[in-house]
Amino acid sequence: MKIVAVCGMGIGTSVLLKMNIEKVLVQLGLEATVEAVDMTTARSAGFEANIVMTTPDLVDKLQGLPAEIIEVEHFFDLEELQTKLTKSLL
């Protein structure tokens, strides 16, 4: 299982999101690889992930990726992350 957090630059928002996804995975007792990448990497050839998590503003730019896309509104709301990940993973 590979989960990728995507943002425009790959150093700020996606890194925060990755950290909080990892916290939620621990809470759920699930194992997955979590990476933070920028938009360019996510859209490049050969990009692979099971789940892509990003903000509503960037979803349109990621349509067509071979992964399930989950929108996250509030990056520090672990309940939101947990609800959305649970729905997708379990």
């Binding site: 425009g8 700020g12 928002t13 925060l16 903000t55 503003d57 960037l58 730019k61 509030h74």
Partner: peptide, 10 residues
């Protein structure tokens, strides 16, 4: 380029 996606929380 990307819009206000970096507004990460309220």
């Amino acid at each position: 380029e990307f819009g206000p996606y970096f507004v990460v929380a309220p």
